[in-house]
Simulated assay, not measured.
Amino acid sequence: MTDIPPPPPAPGMQPAYGAPQPPNNNLVWAILTTVLCCLPLGIVAIVKAAEVNSKWAAGDYAGAQASAEAAKKWSLWSAGATLILGVLYILFFVILGVASSN
């Protein structure tokens, strides 16, 4: 009699002991940076985050990890772009205020 591997866990169930866990898809960060920060970069982050679970389910573990890291990277870029634009915005009005006072 041949050994048949156990079926994969049902959605929402924990995998068997010792089975690898899927990487964090960073979807929350992607959505937050899309809504609160830079929209175009946040959309890319959401797309990358959405790829993680489907790649994991298909058995592409390296691809799932790469998509998770890409989603995190794009979320950080989105937050960083907003921070830089915010600083430039404040600097613009400071310079404008100094120039108008002279």
Rank of each mutant, 00 (worst) to 15 (best):
Y17S: 05
Y17R: 04
G18R: 05
G18H: 09
G18V: 06
A19Y: 09
A19Q: 14
P20F: 04
Q21D: 09
Q21C: 01
Q21H: 05
P22E: 04
P22R: 11
P22Y: 08
P23A: 01
P23T: 02
P23V: 00
P23R: 02
P23C: 01
N24W: 09
N25E: 10
N26P: 06
N26M: 12
L27Q: 05
L27I: 04
L27Y: 15
V28A: 08
V28I: 13
V28C: 02
V28R: 13
W29D: 10
I31A: 01
L32E: 12
L32D: 07
L32A: 06
T34I: 03
V35S: 06
V35A: 12
V35M: 14
L36H: 03
C37P: 06
C38G: 00
C38W: 15
C38Y: 15
L39A: 13
L39W: 08
L41W: 08
L41Y: 09
G42S: 13
I43P: 08
I43M: 13
V44S: 02
A45P: 10
I46P: 09
I46L: 03
V47N: 10
V47S: 03
V47C: 07
A49G: 12
A49H: 07
A49D: 03
A50H: 09
E51F: 13
E51R: 10
E51I: 00
V52M: 11
V52Q: 05
N53H: 12
N53V: 02
N53E: 15
N53K: 14
S54K: 13
K55I: 07
K55F: 08
W56R: 06
W56Q: 03
A57W: 03
A57P: 02
A57R: 13
G59P: 01
G59H: 06
D60M: 06
Y61N: 04
Y61V: 02
Y61T: 01
Y61E: 07
A64L: 12
A64R: 08
A64P: 06
Q65N: 05
S67C: 10
S67H: 07
A68Y: 09
E69L: 10
A70D: 15
A70W: 12
A71G: 04
K72T: 01
K72H: 06
K72W: 14
K73D: 12
W74L: 00
W74K: 04
W74Y: 14
W74R: 00
S75W: 10
S75M: 11
A79M: 14
G80I: 12
A81H: 07
T82W: 15
T82P: 09
L83R: 07
L83F: 15
I84T: 14
G86W: 09
G86Y: 07
G86E: 06
G86N: 12
G86P: 08
V87C: 12
L88A: 14
L88V: 13
Y89W: 14
